[in-house]
Amino acid sequence: MKKTKLKFAIAGAVLVAAVATGTALAVNGSSAGSGSTSGAEQTRTEQAKQKKLSAIKADGSNVFPHSLDFDARSNTFFAGSLKHGTVSAVSPDGKVRTLIDDPEMVSAQAVLVDRERDRILVSNVDYGTADRSKKNAPFRVAGVGSYDLESGKQDWCVDLTAVTLDGKQHLISDVTVAPDGTAYAVDELTPTVFRIDRKGRASVFLQNDLLKGTLDIPDFLNDVGMSAVEWVEGNQLIIAMADGSLVRVPVKHPEKAQEVKLSAPLGSPTAGMRLLKDGSIAAVSSGLLTGKPAQIQRVEPRDGWKKATVKVTDTVEDPVTSDVTAGPDGTTYALSGGLADLLAGKPNDGFSLTPVKTE
């Protein structure tokens, strides 16, 4: 691994879902609804809604989020700040207020709403560029915090470097949660998946060569690996690698992890993904290295996620788009966090959510 200029440091993070992972919910699928409305009719209705939507311009200056999630009950988005280490509540009209401001959180990357337990899970990282960074020691902070969904008060914040004690650099790019409340966090710089119980007690769940990184970011990082993770039906983890591949991990038998056979690789670097209502996954791939629009892709599983079909369903003009999440009334939004300004060391006046198609 090599470290160079600040702009490349942030750029790599954005691309691999590290500066820009983790992670977000997608939208209603095409399964049939109740009554006389067919699944196809529901899909057409949702697509019609999507076409009428306009982008949400959030007014949070210098927040620079990489990831966000949506809480349907409160009709609120929650976005992490790479710059401030905070988590903001964002209303559909773009109003932003700080909900979580924890001194232990250096840079807030992955954000996950766990409504079942009225909490928000947030990954703690350090690129050396945040207000609370240790400027000369990047990638030495790696953890996950749990916070009350209403008050933002910390439940716990676990230091995952204390679990491995390996002296290596770490970057917790994403986190997901199983129905029993167990959280799983993936490390982009080592092939390690962590398990965290509901009380914040952490352990190494899996270390596997399948999860070693193969994507090189010029003049910044070599061998970049896991960028996103989702818990899916069948008690499995689906892990996105920055190079566009997917790995399936049976939770009860992690030693049986295997690569998913895809009809085509996801765009690389893959930045974030979330589970759709019908069991498929929506993923977003950054275009920062190429300068081309970011891609929204639909991944439809076959044979219990041993295989999957990949198709591009939409694009977002901003190449630095880094996440995709559910929105109000079954819509889907992609996050562009203003990271181009962050790369250039410039302030900005907010970030944007763009409606996208996942069918």
Rank of each mutant, 00 (worst) to 15 (best):
L149N: 08
S74N: 07
D180N: 14
T43C: 05
V284K: 05
L189W: 01
A271M: 13
T129F: 04
M226C: 04
M226Q: 12
L221E: 00
V63P: 00
E259V: 13
A9M: 09
I120G: 03
S123P: 02
H170F: 04
T86W: 11
G350D: 01
V229Q: 02
Y184A: 03
K346H: 13
D216M: 06
E46W: 14
D197N: 15
A264E: 15
G272R: 00
D318N: 14
I172V: 09
A202R: 02
M105S: 12
L215E: 07
P328S: 11
F8S: 00
V310A: 01
S151N: 03
V310N: 00
S67E: 15
D323N: 15
F220V: 08
T76C: 11
T214S: 15
S146W: 01
E188L: 08
F194I: 12
T76V: 08
R119D: 03
L171S: 08
S36E: 11
S280A: 12
K135D: 10
G60L: 12
A240I: 01
T161C: 05
N75D: 15
A110F: 07
S30P: 03
V19I: 08
R44T: 10
S263Y: 13
K311Y: 12
A17L: 05
A110E: 10
D243A: 14
V27F: 07
T309A: 06
A240H: 03
T86N: 13
L189V: 11
S38V: 02
A79Q: 03
E230I: 00
P250C: 03
L266F: 12
H253S: 15
K49R: 10
A58P: 15
V310G: 02
F70H: 12
S173W: 02
D329M: 05
L343P: 04
K52M: 10
D174F: 00
T309P: 04
E259A: 14
V177C: 10
G234V: 11
R302H: 14
T192Q: 11
A240R: 02
K277R: 07
A130W: 04
D341H: 10
K346Q: 15
F351P: 12
K306H: 13
F8C: 00
A294T: 01
A17R: 13
A162I: 01
K292V: 11
L211D: 03
H253N: 14
N235C: 09
A24D: 12
T354L: 04
T4D: 06
D323G: 15
D126F: 04
Y147D: 00
A283G: 03
G152A: 11
P265F: 05
V310L: 00
T192P: 12
G350S: 03
I296T: 05
R119L: 04
K199L: 13
R140A: 07
P347D: 12
D71K: 04
D59G: 14
D102V: 05
R97Q: 13
V312S: 07
S336D: 11
G167Q: 06
D71A: 12
A183L: 10
V163E: 01
V324G: 11
G244M: 09
Q258I: 06
